[in-house]
Design a protein around this nucleic acid. Sequence first.
DNA 1: GCAAAAGTGTTCCAGATACACCCATGT
DNA 2: ACATGGGTGTATCTGGAACACTTTTGC
Lengths: 222, 222
Amino acid sequence: MAYTYEYPHLAVTTDVAVFTLQKGELHVLLIRRGNDPFRGAWALPGGFVRPEEGLEDCARRELEEETGVSGFYLEQLYTFGAVQRDPRERVLTVAYFALIPSDRVVLKASADADAVAWFPANRLPELAFDHRDILKAARERLAAKLDYSTIAFQFMPAVFTLSELQTVYETIKGEKLDKRNFRKSILALKRLETTGKYKREGAHRPAMLYRIKARKGVEIIK
Amino acid sequence: MAYTYEYPHLAVTTDVAVFTLQKGELHVLLIRRGNDPFRGAWALPGGFVRPEEGLEDCARRELEEETGVSGFYLEQLYTFGAVQRDPRERVLTVAYFALIPSDRVVLKASADADAVAWFPANRLPELAFDHRDILKAARERLAAKLDYSTIAFQFMPAVFTLSELQTVYETIKGEKLDKRNFRKSILALKRLETTGKYKREGAHRPAMLYRIKARKGVEIIK
DNA sequence: GCAAAAGTGTTCCAGATACACCCATGT
DNA sequence: ACATGGGTGTATCTGGAACACTTTTGC
């Protein structure tokens, strides 16, 4: 099967930088490549855009196929188009980033990949293509958005404690936050409500469980 | 001449939303299309990406070819990929936005276009494709960046008065600013210096002319 | 002398920051 | 009883917002 056009066309992929939090560390989803180029190396999940498929649809489909997760937050990041970024031919990639709550990180292996795994964002293996650059851009965007949007909520399960939410902020920003000030400013957003239930674990006072009032999209705040 | 590939490729263009300021109004550069589809309609300058050409190179080249200007500020905006955005076939566009100082708005007609003209951003003609969406996204990005970067300097000629700079902010944000507060905050950035010369025009006190200390890129501030 | 834009400081307020102790629980 | 993380209020600081008059010029 061949595809012929009157003038040059480009190969176009979407790649997705998928983040979650595990054990107080930011993790990235990577796939071990089963084909050349970079066979055996780790790469972002992604694949070629089909002619009748929207860009975001493509990113979502590839990610669902390769990992089995769905319903995640997805946002276009940047389009990487350096001429030599793929050794085979010119390949453009429209990069996205996705966030997955920490209670939905179960993965399935798939036909496209030898393996799928979460890696701590600070200890990554060698990556295929320019995927390290893509991840760097995604981390910067994520960290920036913490300050002026409700994006952090996308990491949270259905119910959670304020300390857990604070850990999300601290992990991504890489700095400790003051507990009282954090609670004050988060509650001032009026986006959380108490469930009336408590999380009890370990030898200490149980923590109030909160939920997000309207789990719509990410809102810009301040 | 035909181009054949083993699997589907996409047509990829860059389109550029070019802004400048004229007579205290934000203006957009448009090109009247000489070919179908949308022959005779106005559109953003842009064109197909060549296989051996970087994305930003393409945006810059198309804009220089069609307008004769060069050395402008250029930033990737967003990639638009709706399946039906071009009636001929699936065409992806990597949209950029560009800013041109108000003293360099001279245009040349070119082979690609019947006409090139500046339009007030608030009174646009019918536009081809989804170019109205692209312009909307570009305006939003521009307005947002005023608050946390030095992007407004990209509109200024070599020397200018603080009142002229203030007019740039007021025009893009669509609101009046306090003169004393504006000067205080702009000068606090330490990015401007006086030239020692004055602009004298009209029956009033001459205004000090300033210049930008280091005309590098756009910096993130605060 | 008058019209028109340039230039200049201080007060006020709100939101961010710094900071320390008691509470509820399991062992 | 003690170790562990949960939960709470106030004083201070700082950056943004509000605000009015004098200066220099051309006509």
